[in-house]
Design a protein around this nucleic acid. Sequence first.
DNA 1: TGATCATGCAGAAACGTGCCTGCCAACGCG
DNA 2: CGCGTTGGCAGGCACGTTTCTGCATGATCA
Lengths: 362, 362
Amino acid sequence: MSRAETPRRGSRPGRAGIRDVAAAAGVSITTVSDALNGKGRLPDATRRHVREVAERLGYRPSAAARTLRTGKSGLIGLTVTTYGDEPFTFTEFAYFAEMARAATSAALARGYALVILPATSRHDVWSNVALDGTVVIDPSDQDPVVSELVRQGLPVVSDGRPAGALPVTAWVDNDHDAAVLGILDHLADAGARRIGLLTGTSTDTYTHLSTTAYLRWCERVGQDPVYEAYPAHDPCAGAVAADRLLARPDRPDAVYGLFDPNGTDLLAAARRYGLRVPEDLLLVCCSESTVYANTEPPVTTLSLKPRRIGTAVVQLLIDAIEGVDSDHPVEQVIPTELIVRTSSQRRPPRTTVSPPRSPEGA
Amino acid sequence: MSRAETPRRGSRPGRAGIRDVAAAAGVSITTVSDALNGKGRLPDATRRHVREVAERLGYRPSAAARTLRTGKSGLIGLTVTTYGDEPFTFTEFAYFAEMARAATSAALARGYALVILPATSRHDVWSNVALDGTVVIDPSDQDPVVSELVRQGLPVVSDGRPAGALPVTAWVDNDHDAAVLGILDHLADAGARRIGLLTGTSTDTYTHLSTTAYLRWCERVGQDPVYEAYPAHDPCAGAVAADRLLARPDRPDAVYGLFDPNGTDLLAAARRYGLRVPEDLLLVCCSESTVYANTEPPVTTLSLKPRRIGTAVVQLLIDAIEGVDSDHPVEQVIPTELIVRTSSQRRPPRTTVSPPRSPEGA
DNA sequence: TGATCATGCAGAAACGTGCCTGCCAACGCG
DNA sequence: CGCGTTGGCAGGCACGTTTCTGCATGATCA
């Protein structure tokens, strides 16, 4: 009874709790909670009064307490693959940045926030953050993090179709097979006789699917495969591999590069060997960067539409979190977009004067 | 008494609580907590036993409960400026990506995780996540988010020196003034007679400091300022502004561009006007992108060292969170680095054959 | 007029930890 | 033998919410 008016012994001066609001407003804790959360049955007068008092005291509900009580934190993990001690690799740079940007937007629009977490992390970081679900980018075959998450009953949505029997809740991916075939046909239409590939040595599904699609296409049209593979996480190795590809005796007259920097690397290598693009060498690379609109010459790129992927992944995840019987399928395939520029057209409309920058993207 | 063996009525099957561990190990909750956290005075046998049981049950402590109890969440906010409804702008792309990458690494190394939050957000997202502190990028003059955070007693460290009397805990920044003066001197040394500036219309400190440094330099050497300003968040406006700058009657013979895409934009504009780089036009731009090593010609860039900034910001913030009487100053100035390439050298070593890619960065 | 019911609110039990307090046994020592 | 001391553990409160339950009060109705 004597404690009724004591000003909360342990309370820091800066933070007002729900009790302080209740006391100041002359109501109970329940009433404050109901008034602020729009629940219960209260007359508008009480609701307004409580809101005013809360505002005056600068009351902010404790996220930790709310999370503990409700079981929902409003946090979504974004798992990025790591090479060495740095999170996310160089080659996925623009892709990842765009994808993360879209995912952040989509999450915020639905009241969630994104937490960046590395795939290969010590347990203490993972267990220190309360997640409602997780987005994983390109999970490996038997990803232990994914297994652990689903064991805890958390929904997991992956960017990139899961390899093996990885039990993800849903996934989003491009149709890499169709994309590669489309590019190879495009180059063949432009007059390519021997198409080379610049690919990676890692075992992720993107690299794997793209490479096998290339090999199948070669077999179908009866061309000997001409490709160089390099560790895609090493920025310098790409330049070396591009050089090697153009130094081969069976030099290709067209090249598709799977990774973002391949375009500039191949352009530089072509200059070293005196090859004109597109006259002597047709060029396409997979990139989200806008610099290829202004290179000399502009380079045809394949966009994987990372913004659409980031948005879709987050929507699927939040649907799963909130138990929405999603009308989206649990497997979503996002179409790619081939942005055709001078580097892959034998007869470009104009060779010296490039047209004013076009407003691409969406 | 009869409840002693009941398997926790409300417990979901997938999650074991500390009570379950205590019951399975035949000890009390306190003993489990102490054993797992290395506190209290327990014989090693008990400690090992508890750890084994916890491992067997797959016990993961509830982050929410721990946060509520300890008052520390292990989460750091990363506030990004927003233009429109998308977080972080195009122009800061590579800079932000690098900086965020380094910040993520530094935070994880000390057991913290990063939460991406937009500066202009509805309150509900901010109050739904328990933060131990926040990193803000380029806060505006009277940033309401920063004020609110410091009012709650949370440490705030800013990337970019705070404008006005913004009460941040610490800040990290480059010496933009010295950087701009260094570039202008570098261009003048290379033979530039009239140096132009491509700048922005926004009021952040980076744009402001750089522009005033340019104007002061012009006044000192007696050159009329020649500059174009454009809204830096619009990727197309940069190309237009670059074109305008080279179309002026008092066309500059050297240009410094403050933003990342300015290099390619200026190269494209120079080609349109038949200007050779560096013979007719010297070029420098501020960028973290590696594409400028392989453009034709390679472009001299100013690096703001975002990785060092991201690391420093997080270190300062965590020091403040953990109450370390930091031996770092609360204001840290990171040196910039001018990466000199062909575009700013009148007599380049070789004009047609570019040297093999150098392993820059670090 | 007494029974029924909607309305407006308060009490109190969780949520799962961390940690302060305290009990019991064993031990050393004068 | 009595007493302080230390090791080994258990009880229980508190963190700040949400929410279930329930008690009044006035209005409605047979």
